[in-house]
Amino acid sequence: MEKRAIFSSRTLPYLLLLPQMAITIIFFYWPASQAIWQSFLMEDAFGMSSEFVGFENYRLLFEQPEYYRAMVTTIIFSSFVALFSLACSLLLATQADKNLRGGETYKTLLIWPYAVAPAIAGVLWIFMFHPTMGTLSRPIRVIGIDWNPMLNGTHAMILLILSATWKQISYNFLFFLAGLQAIPKSVIEAAAIDGSGPLRRFWTIIFPLLSPTTFFLIVVNIVYVFFDTFGIIDAVTGGGPAGQTTTLVYKVYADGRLGGDLGGSAAQSVILMIIVIALTAIQFRYVERKVQY
């Protein structure tokens, strides 16, 4: 179908493009270029002056053992959250896809957590797992685990993974459910007649047919954990204890906002920006190829 519109003057099309361009430039290109410029500058201790230092900020950054630790933390954090949230939401979606009494209610309820703001989600989880006042901390202690996410880095990470996963399940669930509903029923029925039990059917038919959705979600989830978990981390652990739950994004905030190292923080932002661009490029490349069929 021909979708080209013909404009008689040159001004109108540019005028129509203007709002979108303005938004993109003001809220993306301008801050991004500011960050890139900032990453080449170094300020004095009082923020009175700054000088151009080239790649000095990057060099210093890659000399910091904390930066590598934040990288490892981020990788652990994002792998677990992506894995758990994808697995849980896939399980929930396959169950919700069945013809159940009240199925619509389950679906709606499963989508709700996505509407909760990250910081509020973090606070909710603290209420449950706070070492002294958490409602669920007591039963955990009763079974003999010295639960303390305030002091124990592993416990803090577990708590973060749980809350970030919980937050992301709804989103993945929606996509998986849509993906499942797009699979023709007769294909599943044909497989059933072909002697394939429910589990075998899932792994040989449904899961491969969902792979475009799964791949898309893996990328989206990694981006989510890299960037959008800031609120949860800030509310639950504040990057602690002793920096053990500081991810790359949280470190940008901690170094720049709390540490006052604007140049170093900007350099980290630029690196993160490159990571996102790379992830998005991979995603487009594969989504366009439809992954497998």
Binding site: V187, L209, Y293
Partner: peptide, 10 residues
């Protein structure tokens, strides 16, 4: 044999 063939697309 189904009306829409129901072949496994992958």
């Amino acid at each position: 044999v189904f009306q829409n063939y129901a072949l496994y697309p992958h």
